[in-house]
């Protein structure tokens, strides 16, 4: 195989290839700084703010992993609540009934969701596009209807999560917050590493042109299945965090399709198919929620309208407006080819 011009230039040492760009150095280090600052937040601000920040972490995890699924993999799922529910119930069973350590229980909840996502993927991958979307929804409904059959885990009424009830209220909230922050950092890092990896390159190719990716030797279905399982595990972590922060798992709430609505809104407003978009989208969503959540239906109508306006007129989302067509990236996921000075 003949070497490309770029390869020749690199061998002649006039040019070089690097992963880290100025923006991604600044972006990634500020991400770490923000995470470090957030870690000390419970000592500085009101606990009710700390408590509502746990919601923010849950939404970051959901939006990041849904974006991998829909934004990169092209699979619009409206059934991620299946894994949120399974994750929440796994948490209760593992930590309460089996007495596992909370951190081990969260990790295992993610594993449970990932494993369950494998057989489900074989079913729903028979559907494409819009039918895939409704198919995932049906699966989520089936999981909900099956879960409420078991009185051992509370049936239709739900079950309490009591593994952390020994702690005082303040410590419980702070601990949930730190667990949420830690999980968020891990999930965001996992998304960045996944996109940087060989599978991520394949996934990015699938995002840009599925047919071209397939003819270039990308195993499209295998890559999609990997992402489907990854997103299932991510939603499972979010579910486990819901159990930890609310101390109660109610089937109608954890299996609610509203979670999917929130994920979609966040990713669409932030920027579909980018790593930075969901984080920006979560901030927008969270501020709107703090401002308007008391208005109930009106708030949700507004979210719907904003979401539609973004899909129709600002398809790249807020990050699309900022990033100047991908020239700015906050995470080192691409390769950059430049001349030596």
């Amino acid at each position: 195989m003949s070497a490309s011009v770029a390869q020749v230039l690199v061998e002649q040492r006039t040019h070089f290839v690097r992963r880290w760009t100025r923006t991604s150095i600044i972006g990634s280090s500020s991400f770490l700084v923000v995470a470090a600052l957030l870690a000390v937040l419970p000592f500085m601000v009101n606990l009710s703010l700390v408590y509502s920040m746990i919601d923010l972490f849950i939404l970051v995890i959901l939006a990041m992993t849904w974006n991998m699924l829909a934004g990169y993999g092209g699979m619009v799922s409206v059934g991620q609540q299946a894994y949120i529910g399974i994750g929440a119930y796994s948490m209760v069973v593992l930590a309460d009934s089996l007495g596992l350590n909370i951190f081990a229980a969260i990790a295992l909840s993610a594993v449970v969701c990932g494993v369950i996502a494998i057989p489900i993927s074989f079913l729903v991958f028979r559907l494409v596009g819009g039918y895939f979307a409704v198919g995932t929804w049906v699966v989520a409904e089936v999981v909900r209807l099956l879960v409420v059959q078991f009185p051992q885990i509370g049936g239709g009424a739900g079950i309490s999560f009591s593994a952390m009830s020994d702690l005082s209220r303040d410590w419980r909230i702070a601990t949930s917050y730190w667990i949420g922050l830690g999980a968020t950092v891990i999930v965001v890092a996992a998304c960045v590493l996944l996109i940087r990896s060989r599978a991520g390159l394949a996934l990015t190719a699938v995002r840009d042109d599925m047919t071209a990716a397939s003819t270039s030797g990308v195993m499209v279905t295998a890559v999609k299945r990997l992402v489907f399982v990854f997103a299932g595990a991510g939603a499972g972590i979010a579910g486990a965090l819901i159990a930890v922060s609310t101390m109660r798992v109610q089937p109608d709430s954890v299996f609610s399709v509203q979670w999917s609505a929130f994920m979609i809104f966040i990713v669409v407003v932030g920027g579909v198919g980018t790593l930075e978009g969901p984080i920006i989208g979560v901030l927008v969503f969270w501020f709107l929620k703090q401002l308007l959540a008391d208005y109930g239906p009106l708030y949700l109508i507004l979210l719907g309208v904003i979401g539609i306006v973004f899909v129709l007129f600002v398809r790249g989302g807020i990050w699309g407006l900022i990033s100047r067509k991908g020239r700015i990236e906050l995470f080192p996921v691409g390769y950059n080819f430049s001349k030596k000075l």
Binding site: A70, G74, V76, V78, V128, G129, G130, A133, S260, A261, I264, V268, V272, G296, P297, L298, L300, I301, L303, G304, V305, G307, I308, V311, L312, R315
Partner: peptide
């Protein structure tokens, strides 16, 4: 199929909540 799915899902939420309101 992404845009049409996202828009119709948004419409679904708008209609449900208008009816609730």
């Amino acid at each position: 199929p992404l845009p049409s799915l996202l828009v119709t899902f948004g419409l679904s939420i708008i209609i449900q909540n208008l009816l609730l309101m």
